[in-house]
Each structure stands twice: as C-alpha cells, then as structure tokens.
Design a protein around this nucleic acid. Structure first.
Length: 937
RNA sequence: GCUGAAGUGGUGGAAUUGGUAGACACGUUGGACUUAAAAUCCAAUGGCCAUUAUGGCCGUGCGGGUUCAAGUCCCGCCUUCAGUACCA
C-alpha cells in the first residue's frame, strides 16, 4: 500500500471534527496552556502559503503541549469587521455581512485542509452581534470609569460623582481634559444635570471631544495614527488632512506609564517592545511657564533641557497654537496670517518630506525670561508640532540643532552657555559632557545638577516643575463607516447616554447604500430605523424622534481594533450570553501563554489590547494585567516572481541568458507557469493571457528560462502560491513540514515550491519504514543499540527545538532519523511507536494513520511525549573538558568511556607516543603545531 | 538621522554558543532501472592545487585584535533589511 496522502488526510480531518478531538474543557487536572494565533481578517482573496506559517507553528506547539500533558486551549476566529468588505459593498451593493460570510466559509475550507488542531467550537467573529454585544459592553464600562492617579488605576465613575458631591474636584488627582475648572461640592450640587454630564465627560476613560483628527477624504473617514504611513492612508495610500471633528476618544494616555512598565514583565520580541516604547515616547524634563509681555497671557513649554534655560534666545509656537492670534502685533499680522495659511495648505506629507526647509514668522510679541527678565521674541514655525507637548518650545539655539538652524536663518542671536565649547558651526547637544556657564546660578554645573537646580528655582518662582511627557496621544475611537460595531449610545440634548447593558447588542441597521450621506453624516445616517425609544428600550424608526422619549442614536461605528482588543479573553467562554466570560473561565485560563502573529500590529492591536486588558484588570474583570505572556512574530513568506523579457516594441520574448543582447522590458508572469528549473511552459503562457497568444520566443538550449525576483506575495506580481494546490499535490503534511523547513520562524524567507519534494520524499520514506513491501509491518522485536541511539538522539533534539521554537531544524532531525533507521532496517515497535509521537505535531495526518495501524483506538493526540534517556547515547561521542599545562583548555571528543584523568593521561601519551589508549585508539586526533586540540572518536 | 536585526556554497539554511564550518534539503552533474517518461535508488558537489590510497593551501561582508583555537568574543568600517522620524 502506497502513501495515499489525500485519502489519509481527508479521513483524519473528518475524524478529528467528528470526535471533537481538540475540544478544550474549562477545567482539568492537567495544567493549562493557551496557544493563540492572531485571528485573520477574511479577505476575498483567500489564503496564500504565507498566511498559515504562524498557524502551523502554533499548531505544532499546541499539539506538543498536549503530548506533554497540558490541557491546551487553541482557538481560532475571525476579525470580520473591516474596510475591504465595506469598499466592496460600496462598489457592488452587496451587504458586507454576506461578503464576510462567504469569505469566512472559504477561509475555513482552506484552513481545514491543513489539519489544524483548533477548537472550532469556540470560534468567534467580531461582526457577530453575540460577540459585539460585549465590545459594546466594554465601551460602556470605559464610559463609566475614570482614572485615579492616586490609586493609579481606573475606578467607577460613581466614586467620582460621590467625591464631587462631597468635596468638589479640588483634591481629585485624575487623568482628565486640560480645561477642567476647579469647583466645590456646592458648585457641583448646583450644576444642572447637563453641566454635570459635561464635567464628567472630561474625566471618563472614553469621552466625546472636539479633536483634530486625521481625515481621509477619499475613504470618507477618520484614521488613527497607526493607520497612516508616511502621511498617507495605510489602506489605499490616499492623502490625509487635519480636521476638527467631534469624536469618541479613548484615554489611553492614562495608561502610558503602565504600558511601558508592563513591557518589563512579558516575554515579547525586543524589536516589538522597542517600537512600543518608541510609540509611547516617554521623555523626562520640565514644563516652564513664560509670561508674555504686555498681555495677560502665559506660554507653557515642555523641555528636556531645563539646564539650558539661560540659552533661550527666542520661543517658537506651532502655527496652530491658540495664543498666536491674541499676541500677534498689528504690524506683524499680515506676515503671520500669510504664514499660517501657507502651512495649513501643506499636507502632512509635504511637511514630512520637506524637513530641511526652514520657515517661520515673527509675531511681534515678547515673552519674559523667568530668571533674567529679558524680553524673548516669540516666533511661529512649523518645525514645532501642535500635537506634541504644549505646541510651544523655548528655543535654545546653542543646544539644539533645529533651534540653531532657525536662529541662523532668521538672524536671531545665539548665546553660548556651554563652557569650552565652540558653537560657531553647529549646536552642542551632548548632555553628558555639558558644563553650564554664562547662566547665573547654574554656572559650573554639569547637566544633571543644573537640571535639578533649574527645576528647583522654577518651582520657587511658580513658573515650572519637573514633568514627564509622553508622545502617546489618546486614541480616536469613532469611524465614519458602516461595517463596524455600532455604539450603544443615544443623545439627549447633545449629551451621550449609554444604553442599558440588558438591551445589548445594538445591532447594525440596514442601509441602502454604504457611503456617507450627502450632508456628510456617516453611513448610519442613511438608516431609516435608527433611533432609541427609552420607554420601549429598543431601536425604532427615525421619523419618531421627538426628543422626549425617542432620541437619535450615535451614527459612527467603532474602529477595527475594538473587537480585537479583548477577543482572546472571550475564547475562554465564547457562548456566554450573561457575562463577557464567567469568572470561573477567566480564573482557569488567566491569559494567553503563547501568542503568534505578525509584527505589523506592534503599535496598533498589541498596544490597544494591552490597554484594555489593564483597564479590565483595574475593574476586577480579569485577573492579570498583561494578556499574553509570550509573543512570537512570525516572518513573512515572500514570493518568487517569474520575469520574462520582451524585446522592446515587439511581441517577442527572449530567454534570460540572452536578454543582454537586446533591449528588453520585464514582465511578470504567473509562477504556476514555471517548472522546477525556471523553465517557462510556453503553451500554458499562450493560454494564460490573450497578449501571449501569438508571442514568439527566443530560446536558449531549447528552453525559455525566466528571471526570478523575491518580493512580497501579491496578486499584482502573479507570485501568489495557493496552499490548496500544494495540499492536493503533496499533501497537508508536506505543506506543514515544508513551511517549517524553509527557515527560522521569525525570519522573512522566500517560498519556492520546487523544494517541497525534499520533505515530501521524507514522508514517503517514513511511510516505508512502517511497511514491508506493501504490507504494514512493525514487529515487537528488540531494538538494536543503534536504533535506540537514533531514537533518543531525536527525542532530545526535537524536544529542545520545540521548546526554543526552532522548528526548522527538527524537520532535518526527522530526516536524519528516518534515513538512519532505514539504513538500520529498523522495524521494532519500541522505536517506531515513539517516533510517531515526535513527528505527529509536524505531520499529524500520517502520524494518526500509522498510529491507528499500530493498533491504537485513541488519537495520537492523547499519546505521551517519549522520555529521553541519556543512557542510550553513552556509546556515542562525548565531550570532555580538560585543562592542559594549567592554562590551555581543551574539549576532547571521544567514543571511549574513560574517566577524566585517564583521558588526560591518554592524550599526553598519545601526543608523545601515538600509542594506544586503553586498548582503543581514537580515530582521529587533530593536532595544531605541537598541541592537541581535538580528538574525534 | 536614530533604533533594531542580519551578512556563511549556485539556492534555502545548519553549526551543541569559543572547539572537525557548510548538517539537512533544493539545484546541478554522472550512474542504475525503464522502449520512453515519471517515480525510485546510488555517487559526486565551497574554491584552488595535487593525486591510480593518502594529501596540501585558501575560505563564514571588509580591516585589525584577543586566544592553543574565532562564523561565534572585542575595536573600526562597508552593505542589506525592518521600524521610526522636525518629539523640543
């Protein structure tokens, strides 16, 4: 019987599904282990071979952990809200729910063919109302919370109301909007309900605010910072402009420090941690308040170098700074207005691309230096960003290159406050080697002491304090889209009201078109039934809005990251309609032990998910404040495009080796048209696209050889390889092994279908090992010492490899083992049975088949991982470290079972006499001039 | 510019962490089997030189250094990829 992988794989996939082999129980005597993949967005294009890489790795680990006696949770689901389905709906009128459902069905079919051990009974979809009920619930919880800096955690808004009612807000140390004014309990109690709501909104963890947002006109929506790449939208590459809008925001800035601190406690890749650290952007310094001369106004700046305050010879405000209009003198007004207009016109992208050009304008106003009381001219310039710090800087040209360049450009005086430093060419920014001079009370002090002293003096004046500033901004949470979670929010008198939890979910209404309305409202503005009846507690028709009992509902939807910020917890108890998850479930599973996914989510999903987890922790809903202990970023699998060379102006194509003789242009063709040796199938090409029907070819040695280029797998380059075809031709086990064999999990690597024959023939050899001719035959015979050695060597290596996520090398180990066992003609059950368990995480189908043939009724998934016994390896070479002449240290590799002293003596003896060692002679002794370095037995 | 990772045969990649560099596989070449092809099996395969046993020299981006011993450690360069960018 030959290795009929198609039949075997279909059989076992059906078996696993029917027997629910991989269904996880909430609770067990075994220790728990939670292995999670980043759930996919089901796009219309289906899976290519790059997608399953991480899933295969996590599946191997999950299956391994089951063999090791763990109760493993390994779920899968779909991140099914998103822009592509909506764009498709706009173009075709097809409801996104239908497109999404179809795409999911296709994904599932493809995933099933690869033989994953997912517990599909726990599947979640973010676009399923049963799921987004809980997304809405978390939103409400955030709305009903505030961040207490004293306790350093989120607390219920009820607590805050109680504090306001009894003592006002004077003593409250909370993360809140900057414009809150102080009030007493008496004030509070006399506020109208609306006034109270307005005040509370400034404290809530999700709040409504007029914010300047990244507006993308082409997409008709607001984008978060991480959805913008190089000043254009990540999806589609459209321009993005700044615009003021009333939006929901998430007060993630409250968690900036804890998000940083938490990184210390989790085992995530350093590059990923670095980019989160960078994104949060903590900088320590001071805030300094400058009085504006002749105005009742002050300018607050943030600086990391308060020690250089005596070097401040001017100030620069961002053009958008609110004080600009107020302080600009009439003589300077025209110039300032012109400059502001010019900068506003420049897109974010132009501003970024053009950082070299120095521009700015003088307001005519002066600030007063806190210590010298000298006047300091106030300028505006677009190198100061409105969105960072206070949107204003004290410019110290001698210590900051940008200030220096600005000063030179506008002929502003530069004062040198550094001892023994030449600043005639450039600014001096080396903190560590700074000695301050020309700076009053700071003279002679180094950076650290000067900083301390400056802050101390500023505090005395009441014009500054030490401060930590973060780059991390609150996250805008509104999207002007249809295909997202609706907010559980209606408005009374312009103030947002939460819909009671028991009426959730608020389901998406039907609309006839998925575009924004003519008046610029989000698509939900088109819904005819989208108003809230507070008496009936249900969504009713818009016509009925009377602002007495029926009120308008929020028209925005939530962003893509809403559902993905907690889905990992929902898998623990996915069908619970009463709670987001039971406390039993979350107490048992706690957190994700291993999370595998792409590094592109570093500053998006992975940051927001950590934020929500910390919030849920503060509110006692989850037991740990980091959701994933260990995370691995799998590398991208790249495509190997095929290139043909057209002679310019003709329909003649020249083979790669001859292309230099002609003037050619490159065209990419489908990689499916290429055989294993880069030869193009001309007939298939002619049929592929009409333009090649009458093409002519200049061949070399009778063949057309294509050029190859490694690049991202994409339909555009015709280099996409579909896993279905691979499964059909070589089997899922081959696909799984090959994806691992390609290279280290975390590294980007090119796909080349040709190489799969290596792992495929390994599987055929493995199959043969269990067969005598056509008959299955495994005997109860005593294993040979060599076979035991092979087995235990393999156990050791594979176990180490899996623990270190170095799956590529264990595939090689299997190959070596099978080759050795074949050469040993091993047919002993003692060897062949545990070997299957080792291989089963990688190639589960063939392992199940052979396992069943060995007479097991239960799935191999229930088998125990074989135990490594060192005694079987003692016959092999062994390393002995010895010292020699008291100084040199050697490692001797011998197949002799000798003691340390004997070896030392033996080596000395051998070196001198080349005589026998204890009756046995090492095969080879490597000698470097006069000294033995290595002995190989 | 800054941060991080990495440079090993024709290719993907190994190397027990300082101890025989190139495991394993692809590809290539030769051979066996076959009418033929596919499949399968065997052999060779870093470079140069020598050779009808065996052998020698050079080799892990470049230049130095430490060491009996360096792909691995140290110093200085070069290149590539990824992230980030007027962050005060």
């Amino acid at each position: 019987m030959s290795y009929d992988f198609n039949t075997i794989e279909a059989k076992w996939q059906k078996y696993w599904a029917e027997k629910e082999t991989f269904k996880a129980q909430n609770g067990s005597d075994k220790p728990k282990y939670y292995v999670l993949d980043m759930f996919p967005y089901p796009s219309g294009a289906g899976l290519h071979v790059g997608h399953p890489l991480g899933y295969i790795a996590s599946d191997i680990y999950a299956r391994y952990k089951r063999h090791k006696g763990f109760n493993v949770l390994h779920p899968q689901g779909y991140d099914s809200f998103g822009l592509p389905a909506e764009q498709y709906a706009i173009q075709t009128g097809q409801h996104p729910a239908i497109t999404t459902k179809e795409n999911i069905a296709r994904y599932r079919e493809q995933l099933d063919k690869i033989g994953f051990s997912f517990d599909w009974s726990r599947e979640v979809r973010t676009s399923d109302p049963k799921f987004y009920k809980w997304t809405q619930w978390i939103f409400i919880e955030l709305f009903n919370s505030w961040y207490d800096n004293e306790e350093n955690k989120a607390r219920k808004i009820e607590d805050l109301k109680a504090i306001f009612a009894s003592e006002g807000n004077e003593k409250v140390n909370a993360v809140c909007d900057e414009d809150v004014v102080q009030f007493t309990s008496e004030h509070w109690n006399n506020f109208s309900s609306k006034e109270q709501q307005q005040v509370l909104l400034k404290y809530r963890l999700t709040y409504l605010a007029e914010t300047e947002v990244n507006w993308c006109p082409q997409l008709g929506t607001v984008l978060a910072n991480d959805e913008i790449v190089n000043g254009v939208s990540e999806r589609g590459g459209y321009p993005v402009i700044r615009k003021k809008m009333t939006q929901w925001s998430m007060r993630i800035s409250a968690y900036a420090q804890r998000l940083l601190d938490g990184l210390e406690t989790i085992d995530w890749p350093q590059p990923l941690k670095d980019s989160q650290t960078n994104w949060i952007g903590r900088s320590q310094g001071a805030s300094v308040t400058f009085k504006v001369k002749d105005h009742n106004a002050t300018i607050e700046v943030f600086t990391t170098r308060p020690d250089t305050i005596f070097g401040a010879t001017f100030m620069t405000l961002a053009p958008e700074h609110e004080l600009v209009q107020k302080i600009t003198t009439s003589e300077q007004k025209a110039e300032i207005d012109a400059y502001i207009e010019a900068t506003a016109k420049r897109s974010e992208r132009e501003r970024m691309a053009d950082v070299k050009t120095i521009s700015g304008a003088f307001t005519g106003a002066y600030a007063e230096h806190p210590f010298t009381k000298e006047p300091i001219p106030i300028w505006i310039g677009d190198y100061v960003l409105a969105g960072y710090g206070t949107g204003a800087v004290m410019a110290v040209p001698c210590g900051d290159q940008r200030d220096y360049d600005f000063a030179k450009h506008f002929n502003i005086p530069i004062t040198n406050i550094f001892e023994g430093v030449d600043i005639s060419q450039e600014a001096f920014a080396d903190k560590e080697n700074t000695v301050i001079s020309n700076s009053g009370f700071l003279n002679g002090l180094p950076y650290k002491k000067a900083t301390k002293a400056a802050i101390y003096e500023l505090e005395k004046l009441g014009q500054g304090e030490g401060k930590i500033n973060y780059r991390l901004r609150d996250a805008v949470f509104s999207r002007q889209r249809y295909w997202g979670e609706p907010f559980p929010v209606y408005y009374i008198d312009g103030m947002p009201q939460m819909i009671d939890m028991k009426h959730l979910p608020i389901e998406l209404p039907e609309v006839e078109k998925y575009l924004p309305t003519e008046t610029g409202e989000p698509p939900l503005g088109r819904a005819e039934v989208w108003a809230w009846d507070i008496e009936k507690n249900k969504v009713v028709s818009n016509d009925l809005i009377d602002h007495t009992t029926i009120f308008p509902l929020e028209l925005n939807t939530m962003p893509g990251w809403a559902g993905s910020s907690y889905y990992f917890n929902r898998y623990m108890d996915p069908h619970n309609d009463e709670e987001i998850f039971s406390q039993d479930a979350i107490t048992y599973w706690k957190e994700v032990d291993l999370y595998i996914g792409g590094s592109e989510h570093a500053t998006g999903h992975l940051l927001y998910a950590r934020f929500w987890q910390k919030f849920l922790f503060d509110r006692g809903i989850v037991p740990v404040d980091e959701f994933a202990k260990k995370l691995i970023n799998q590398g991208m699998i790249l495509g190997t495009s095929a290139i043909i060379y057209r002679i310019s102006g003709t329909n003649t194509y020249v083979s790669k080796g001859l292309k230099d003789q002609h003037e050619t242009e490159e065209l990419r063709v489908d990689v499916g048209l290429i055989n294993n040796s880069d030869e193009l199938n001309l007939e298939a090409l002619r049929q592929w696209q009409p333009q090649f029907k009458d093409a002519e070819f200049i061949l070399e040695n009778g063949k057309y050889i294509v050029g190859r280029e490694v690049e991202k797998m994409s339909k555009r380059w015709y280099n996409v390889v579909n896993p279905d075809g691979i499964c059909e031709q070589y089997g899922a086990d081959s696909l799984r092994l090959y994806e691992m064999f390609l290279g280290p999990l975390e590294q980007a690597k090119p796909w080349n279908t040709a190489g799969i024959t290596g792992v495929h023939s390994f599987l055929k050899k493995l199959w043969k090992l269990y067969h005598n001719g056509d008959e299955f035959e495994v005997l109860d015979s005593e294993p040979t010492k060599d076979s035991l050695k092979t087995l235990h060597k393999t156990i050791k290596k594979v176990e180490d490899d899996i623990e270190n996520f170095s799956f590529n090398t264990s595939v090689s180990t299997f190959m070596i083992a099978v080759n050795e066992l074949t050469a040993q003609k091993c047919n002993s059950k003692t060897i062949l049975e545990p070997l299957l368990v080792l291989i089963s995480p990688y190639a589960p189908h063939i392992a199940e088949e052979l396992w069943a043939k060995l007479g097991h009724d239960e799935s191999i998934a229930t088998a125990t991982f074989p135990v490594f016994e060192e005694k079987h390896l003692v016959e092999s070479t062994k390393r002995y470290p010895i010292s020699f002449n008291g100084k040199m240290r050697f490692t001797l590799e011998l197949s002799l079972d000798l003691g340390k002293d004997e070896i030392e003596a033996a080596v000395l003896a051998h070196e001198k006499t080349q005589q026998q060692l204890d009756g046995r002679v090492p095969k080879k002794v490597i000698v470097v001039p006069g000294k033995i370095v290595n002995v190989v037995g």
